[in-house]
Simulated assay, not measured.
Amino acid sequence: MKRRDFLKKAGIGAVAASTVFGPVYAQTAQRIRWRMATSWPRSLDTLFGAAEIVAKRVSEMTDGRFEITPFPAGEIAPGLQVLDVVQAGNVECGHTANYYYVGKSPSLAFDTGVPFGLNPRQQNAWLYFGGGLQAMQRVMADFNAITFPAGNTGVQMGGWFRREIKGPEDLKGLRFRIPGLGGQVMTRLGVTVQTLPGGEIFLALDRGAIDGAEWVGPYDDEKLGLNKAARFYYYPGWWEPGSTVSAIVNLERWRSLPKEYQEIFKTACREANEATLAEYDAKNSPALARLQRAGTQIRPYPTTVLQAANRESTALYEEIAAKDATYRGIYTSWKTFRDEIRRWFATNEFRYDDFVRNLR
């Protein structure tokens, strides 16, 4: 056979393969439809948007064969019960902040972030390359679920108050919305802590049921209208210096997925993790300027408050570690990672930040 004839026939064969086997694969590839419960109202287009990124990318990478429909908080599960419905198998997957479930295991706090912990880049470094994600997945397996980072808020703001906070004594007796280990630290500082989903914070603050509340940062807090219910806005959010939000999947449903779909889901989560942080970084600055023009009073937490909170945070960690072996193992490893990565950041990046922050 002449080379030209061979190539011509080979080309016909390639076309046949693309037009026959492609459709055959498409017809036989497994079709999957999942529901995703989330902890976010639809109005929070960054957090709910992170869930939508996961769903959109999974669908696009499977040519619509694997479709996930995200639902806002309250439609198929209350915002603070996403893990419960995923664990029970009532819904296939969820998008939430795993520190909401420290009542199930205090170790889950590390999956989102802990007071005076890691900033966003450090948190990602710990999860992806410091053994953090493997540790969190071992914990989540006890609750019939698997977890993947799928968004990060960046360093959060320190919350809204009806009156100024000039020292630790001003916190005593306040009713404040805050979840996770940060809430436990606030309790140790004399605060009466409440845990509310995002969609319920404004009414509680506006009606005086609480004296203050934290959520995320300028962009989301403006969306919730928190500036209309309180005047003083504090920083930094020392309890959430780089909060991860997560996609969680019922373990049986995860194991039933084809390997290819598992890898696609993980890739989509990683994209959401990166995109959400970048979106917050782009949107928070103009949102903060709008809040200030509207009359919000921006205040730094007094050093005495930060020092007291840091002392209580360290004491809390040590107390939990003394009682919970799983937590102790994660905390010990996490603390070593934290100290090492802080030394690197202090050597280079923190010095750069210190210099450029006052440049004009």
Rank of each mutant, 00 (worst) to 15 (best):
R4V: 15
D5V: 15
F6S: 09
F21A: 14
V24R: 08
W34E: 07
M36Y: 01
A37G: 01
R42P: 02
S43M: 10
D45Q: 02
L47S: 15
A50E: 03
A51W: 03
K56P: 06
S59E: 13
E60M: 04
T62V: 10
G64C: 06
G74C: 10
I76T: 07
V86I: 07
V91L: 05
Y99C: 12
S107G: 04
L108E: 05
A109D: 08
V114C: 11
P120T: 07
W126G: 06
Y128A: 11
Y128V: 15
G130F: 03
A135H: 02
Q137C: 11
R138D: 15
V139K: 01
T147Y: 02
Q156R: 10
Q156L: 08
G158W: 00
E164S: 12
G167M: 08
E169K: 01
L171H: 06
G173A: 07
G173D: 04
L181G: 04
T187M: 13
T187C: 04
V191N: 05
D206M: 13
D206L: 12
D206T: 05
R207K: 12
G225Y: 03
L226N: 00
A230G: 00
R231S: 11
Y234W: 01
G242M: 12
V249L: 08
A272G: 10
D281W: 13
R293K: 13
Q297F: 08
R299S: 07
T304H: 08
T314G: 09
T314C: 05
Y317M: 09
E318D: 10
E319W: 13
I341Y: 00
R342G: 13
R343N: 03
F345D: 09
A346C: 08
F355I: 15
